[in-house]
Design a binder for these strands. Structure first.
Lengths: 131, 131
DNA sequence: CGCCATTGTTTACAGCTGTAATCGCATCGT
DNA sequence: ACGATGCGATTACAGCTGTAAACAATGGCG
């Protein structure tokens, strides 16, 4: 039997550049370093070397796995995007709103960061949730 | 007439430690370095020296003003907390939700980061806004 | 008048981040 | 069998961040 890996709560933070690499792997995995570079290096303008460095760091942080495939590696996320998003969101809510998520929503609303469409969507969402 | 300083959109980022200092100044200002250290250093466990460094960096980033008062300075925020919160929130929404604020709310809801009370509050908020 | 406390400034230094270049080894084509 | 190529690992290095210590100037107290 396999040891149940706890749902990814890595202590080490994922940096901005690293996240771009994660996005590629969340979109499609497994990928080789070259493939990741193709996917992200394009818009980011990074060299293959840079992508390799980021991949190594992510492996070190246990955010991705490197499975040997012949002489190279196939990389796959260990950290799920939903978990990452959750951790980051929580961090922000804690840091800026004293942990009160409703305050965030209130702020977004007041700052007019919410379009009419956003408001409608949220309203619909709420109806769903309160049912 | 005074030149209208644009509502604080400093390019430089405020780091975590720096934010703690800002919080002190947002709570009460102006304050001397020693007073800030008293307010912040307590819970953070920072030395006065550390607080001084952070204040200098914040002045450098144009996030606070240092008004001379005899041989020392009185520090006050230049960046409003609401603006800071806005910038950080936007950054998160962009980075994690492709700029769609409603997605953030959806995520918080799904992750059960929203309590029953939060939901009620948001609902009330929405009613206000749609009026 | 001299010394200590206070205050801002300068310097320090390790760890993280962005962004690579280089190295050494393996492999594939000829 | 040999050289070009591809790949991961190692090394590099500047800028930001956390966390201070050291220093210099000044002002208050005895």
């Amino acid at each position: 039997m396999t040891i149940p890996t706890d749902p990814a709560q890595l202590s080490e933070r994922i940096s901005g550049a690293e996240q771009a690499v994660m996005e590629a792997l969340w979109t499609r995995a497994p990928l080789t370093a070259a493939e990741v570079a193709d996917a992200v290096g394009e818009e980011q303008g990074w060299s293959l070397a840079t992508v390799k460095t980021l991949l190594s760091r992510l492996v070190g942080k246990n955010a991705i796995a490197a499975e040997p495939d012949g002489r190279r590696f196939l990389y796959s996320p260990l950290l799920a995007r939903a978990d990452f998003v959750g951790q980051e969101s929580r961090r922000l809510v804690d840091r800026l709103f004293g942990g009160r998520a409703a305050s965030l929503v209130a702020h977004l609303a007041e700052a007019e960061a919410l379009t009419e469409r956003d408001l409608a969507e949220i309203e619909t969402l709420l109806k769903e949730l309160r049912k």
